[in-house]
């Protein structure tokens, strides 16, 4: 279980993760906000559909790709939370992969 060591309630913002309203601290990474909210599945693997989650938290594994405000392939560990942001687990299958950018 992930938790924050910060106890004060300053600088809190609200975002939505998979439709759930979640509180996070300004400046926090999207991934750590998801982790504290126990929403750890970032994406479904394209072939097997297996659940995946952040692995490196530093931008080199691309396991944390989520959809942010409708945009796919956003690395949650490198993105910062914002008020009203919409984050959801990314489901890109083999068929839709071609549309997902470069």
């Amino acid at each position: 279980m992930f938790r924050s060591l910060q106890s004060d309630d300053h600088n809190l913002i609200t975002l939505s993760v998979n439709g759930r309203s979640v509180k996070a601290r300004k400046g926090q990474s999207v991934w750590s906000a998801m982790a504290v909210a126990s929403e750890v599945v970032t994406r479904k693997a394209a072939l097997s559909g297996n659940a995946r989650s952040a692995y490196c938290a530093m931008g080199v594994c691309f396991e944390c790709m989520v959809e942010i405000d409708g945009l796919a392939n956003q690395q949650a560990c490198l993105s910062r939370v914002a008020e009203g942001m919409n984050v959801s687990t990314q489901v890109i299958t083999e068929d839709t992969e071609a549309d997902a950018g470069l």
Partner: peptide, 10 residues
């Protein structure tokens, strides 16, 4: 990384 940047621990 999570500890240093966000004070988040497991």
């Amino acid at each position: 990384v999570m500890l240093k940047s966000d004070a988040v621990v497991a």
